[in-house]
Computed example of a mutant assay.
Amino acid sequence: MKRLAYLLLSGLTLATMSSCSKDDATPAGPREYQVEYRISSPTAPQSDYLSYDNESGGTTTLSNIPLPATYRFKRTLKQGDHLSLLASLDGGTAASEITAAILLDGREVRKETGRGAGAQAVPVYVIGQ
């Protein structure tokens, strides 16, 4: 019985370890990515405020943006660098909703949805995370 328990535990450990490995290991050195931000709302025609990390590593801030909105650019990033996006609705209702997503090379890496009168979505992604 101990041997069976040991075999089951060993098999479970191996399965867990193999499922934790990254399929798309991020190289430690700099690499160019296609960055895309997507902002949408099923309840509002525009976002009152939008702020995101741009192609130069600075911050772009916009007001009264029609939704849905998409921003794309190429940026060289290395492990540990981050991308962030903040989108908000002002003066909504309890049913208001806004969603913001970060995509790298066409793959969604982070998505957040904010709800309520002052809804905010703030996804942040760290390269290599």
Rank of each mutant, 00 (worst) to 15 (best):
T113E: 08
L77E: 04
S40N: 04
G92C: 07
L50C: 05
S56I: 13
R115K: 14
G106W: 08
G58K: 04
Y125R: 00
G58I: 08
D24F: 15
T70H: 03
A117G: 00
D81R: 00
A117S: 11
I127H: 03
I39D: 04
Y71K: 08
D53N: 06
Y33P: 05
T113M: 08
A100M: 03
L12E: 03
S41I: 10
A28K: 11
S56E: 12
A28W: 10
Q120F: 09
R107G: 01
R75C: 02
Y33S: 07
R31G: 08
A95R: 03
K78Q: 15
A44G: 04
I98H: 00
S18N: 09
S84A: 14
G128S: 03
I65Q: 07
L50E: 00
P42W: 09
L7P: 05
C20H: 06
S84T: 08
L77K: 04
Y71C: 01
G116A: 07
S51Y: 06
F73W: 07
E108G: 04
A5Q: 11
E36K: 13
T26P: 04
E55A: 15
L89P: 00
L9V: 14
V124C: 05
T76D: 04
A94E: 14
V124K: 06
T43W: 03
L62G: 00
D48G: 14
A119Q: 04
Q46F: 12
Y125F: 14
G114W: 04
I39K: 01
E97F: 06
T60A: 12
L85M: 03
K22Y: 10
E36H: 01
T60D: 11
R38M: 04
I127A: 03
T70C: 02
S84Y: 09
A119H: 06
R107D: 09
G118T: 15
T93F: 09
T43F: 04
D23K: 13
A100T: 08
L8H: 02
S21E: 14
G58L: 07
A101W: 03
S88M: 14
Q120W: 07
V35T: 07
T13C: 12
A121F: 05
G80A: 05
L85K: 01
D90E: 14
L86M: 12
S84M: 10
A119R: 01
I65Y: 02
V122L: 11
K74W: 03
G11E: 03
T99E: 12
Y37V: 04
K74H: 09
A87C: 03
P45D: 14
L50Q: 00
K78E: 14
P123E: 10
D105C: 07
A69D: 11
M17D: 08
A5V: 15
E112L: 10
D24T: 13
Y52N: 05
A121G: 09
E112Q: 13
E97L: 15
E112W: 00
S56C: 01
R107V: 15
G91Q: 05
I102H: 02
T70A: 12
L7W: 06
